[in-house]
Amino acid sequence: MAFRSAVITFPGYNCDRDMAVALEQVSGTPAIRVWHGDASLPDRLDFIALPGGFSYGDYLRSGAMAARSPIMQAVIEAAGRGVPVLGVCNGFQVLTEAGLLPGALMRNASQNFICRTVPLKVENSQSLFTAGYEAGQIVHIPVAHHDGNYFADEATLDRLEGEGRVAFRYAEQVNGSIRDIAGVLNEAGNVLGMMPHPERAIDPAHGGTDGRALFESAVKGLVEA
């Protein structure tokens, strides 16, 4: 059966097209584009992507307004039913603001906007998003953010690590994230938020293809399930 994915667009997004292209290239089926003001999602979705950008101009806090927009109620319900949800960059910020993932993304420790390719260590290679990687593998994926400095309290961090919910860590100092966390999973494992942009590393013309396995893992996992 064809892979049905949706890409959510909030006002101020600029990575939604890249995300749709990545999903189409890897799955062979065009992604359905969904606008933030829509009250419902298309039915029978296999995958929901919240891409990156600057939703609502990052007003109040990055992702704060988008997390309260009409479509997010539908995304929260779908996530609760087990539909895989990937949030990248601002999408990660939206997922934390919406309470689908623990923690918060604060201003980078350096105060600078950081835009470069960074090395990441794959911590959990068992999830539906990361099964195409080896545990401990170093991959290179671009980041482009001002607010990527992950924070959660010690008890939450210990629980995340204990439950294997840290998907990726930065393999070098990037933005001040606590315990170098770059991406986290929810308790059920069907929601992943990460600051690096895997959709910007799926084609040799991007300068690297290390992000491709993430989408391939998701597509393959769902087709085989």
């Binding site: 309260r68 603001e97 924070f151």
Partner: peptide, 9 residues
């Protein structure tokens, strides 16, 4: 609690 502050931080 719902919007103006992020109770995590």
């Amino acid at each position: 609690r719902k919007l103006l502050a992020n109770m995590v931080i």
